[in-house]
Amino acid sequence: MQTLIRGIAILALLFSPLSHAQDLNALLNDWFAQRLAGFSDEVVVTIRTAPNLLPHCETPTLSVTGSAKLWGNVNVLARCNNEKRYIQVNVQATGHYVVAAVPVARGGTLSQASVTLKRGRLDQLPPRTILDINQVQDAVSLRDLAPGQPVQLNMLRQAWRIKAGQRVQVVATGDGFSVNAEGKALNNAAVAQNVRVRMLSGQVVSGIVDPDGNILINL
């Protein structure tokens, strides 16, 4: 009889809300770890939603909105058959991010010696902190940077590939043809940015700067 009672107690524990929450926590840890692979190698997820508000199935389908960040406080949509529940979680993610290695003056161009990678909590960083060191190479700083300071996207601009007044080649392509002509750039622009060009005829056209400094127009 005691053996039977003990067995029932174990089953009750296995199917208790606490056990279910622990399983869901493990599922969320794996889900976020997969999506943060390459950025973070250490992910810890804490569920903030009350146990009685969690989805009832064992393996819900998880998702977040496309623009949502994947660390810090995150709302996760959990689908169980026809049921939808939002789970509030806190995601701690540890990985590498870009910091200034030396003082960089406003207007200075960043090089390999200007920046380095630092390891720490990504969820505690300022918004839009850069994680890929290749993103900052040859970029121009828009403000003074101190050593150890996290580098954010809004602190930089890409170096101008085209400058206003510069003579440029405009390459217009269409279905089965390509035409080259010369013009003068009317604004500064980096690679992949839009630039307006005044052609020799006086007509103003707009195109995208390619890595070679040509202005590409699709007709």
Rank of each mutant, 00 (worst) to 15 (best):
183 G>N: 04
196 R>G: 13
176 G>C: 14
196 R>T: 06
179 V>A: 03
175 D>F: 02
171 V>W: 07
183 G>Y: 00
181 A>S: 12
196 R>I: 00
173 T>W: 14
201 S>M: 03
182 E>K: 11
203 Q>P: 09
195 V>L: 00
174 G>F: 02
170 V>E: 01
193 Q>R: 06
174 G>S: 03
176 G>S: 11
180 N>H: 14
188 N>I: 03
182 E>T: 07
193 Q>Y: 07
199 M>F: 08
178 S>G: 06
201 S>H: 09
170 V>Y: 02
188 N>P: 03
201 S>I: 04
173 T>C: 04
172 A>E: 15
192 A>S: 15
193 Q>C: 02
185 A>N: 03
186 L>V: 06
171 V>M: 12
184 K>E: 08
181 A>M: 15
181 A>L: 12
186 L>S: 08
202 G>N: 10
187 N>L: 01
180 N>R: 15
187 N>W: 06
187 N>K: 07
177 F>A: 04
171 V>N: 04
174 G>L: 06
190 A>H: 01
197 V>F: 00
193 Q>W: 00
198 R>L: 10
201 S>T: 09
185 A>K: 13
193 Q>S: 02
197 V>T: 00
173 T>Q: 14
191 V>I: 15
201 S>E: 08
191 V>W: 13
175 D>Q: 09
196 R>P: 05
173 T>I: 09
173 T>G: 05
170 V>W: 01
189 A>D: 06
182 E>R: 06
180 N>D: 14
170 V>M: 06
187 N>F: 07
194 N>H: 03
172 A>I: 10
178 S>T: 13
191 V>C: 11
172 A>P: 00
199 M>C: 11
175 D>E: 02
185 A>Y: 05
172 A>L: 09
189 A>I: 09
199 M>P: 13
188 N>Q: 00
199 M>D: 07
179 V>G: 03
183 G>W: 00
185 A>V: 10
176 G>H: 07
195 V>D: 02
172 A>Y: 01
173 T>A: 11
186 L>K: 05
193 Q>N: 08
175 D>L: 12
201 S>W: 05
170 V>C: 01
180 N>K: 07
196 R>Y: 04
184 K>L: 04
176 G>F: 12
197 V>H: 10
191 V>S: 01
185 A>D: 03
170 V>G: 00
202 G>E: 05
178 S>N: 05
203 Q>V: 15
193 Q>L: 03
191 V>E: 10
178 S>K: 04
195 V>Q: 05
181 A>F: 14
199 M>R: 13
189 A>N: 03
192 A>V: 02
188 N>A: 11
202 G>Y: 04
